[in-house]
Simulated assay, not measured.
Amino acid sequence: MNWNKLQDNAQLDQIRNESAEQPVLIFKHSTRCSISSTALSRMERNWSDAAGIKPYYLDLIAFRSVSNQVAEDFGVPHQSPQVLLIQNGECVYDASHFDISFDALKQQVVSA
């Protein structure tokens, strides 16, 4: 799995634009949380590029302001860990903690 690092608020406009062409995943990860590490590991083990989703990784400890902007821009209350699926500039799916699963994410791409 090849993560794209999300480290700057300006990248959120890029993500909105990219999401018009393909679904985009934002994975908000806390490097201080064992649940977050488990969710990240599960996502990486089950990931398939064949789903056509572009993945972004956000270290929310190092880039707290970006994490806050993600919550504001996409209208999703902050959780950690958390995934957001962005399509056509909007968050069409989000999950947190042990509800994070690649299979659930794939199903949302098909239905969105």
Rank of each mutant, 00 (worst) to 15 (best):
A95K: 01
N68G: 11
P81T: 05
E44V: 15
D103K: 10
P23H: 04
Q14N: 10
D8E: 12
H78P: 03
V109E: 03
C33Y: 03
F27P: 06
I26V: 13
L84R: 04
L58M: 13
N2E: 13
Y56Q: 10
V109C: 13
I35P: 09
Q87D: 11
Y56M: 12
L60S: 07
E21Q: 15
M1V: 13
N4T: 04
S41F: 11
N46E: 14
G89V: 07
A10R: 09
W3K: 01
L12S: 09
A20Y: 15
F98L: 15
A39P: 07
A112Y: 02
E18R: 05
I86Q: 03
S34Q: 12
P55V: 05
W47M: 09
V66W: 01
Q79C: 13
V109H: 03
A20H: 15
R16F: 01
R16G: 02
V76D: 07
A39L: 08
A95S: 07
V76N: 06
S41T: 14
Q69T: 13
F102Y: 15
L12Q: 06
E21K: 14
E90C: 01
P23G: 08
M1E: 02
H78C: 05
H78Q: 04
A10C: 00
Q11N: 02
P77L: 10
N46G: 11
Q22I: 08
W3M: 06
A62K: 14
S19N: 07
L40M: 14
D59T: 02
V92S: 03
M43W: 09
I100Y: 02
L58G: 13
S41Y: 11
G75R: 09
S96V: 05
R32H: 07
R64Q: 11
Q11C: 09
Q69R: 14
N46C: 09
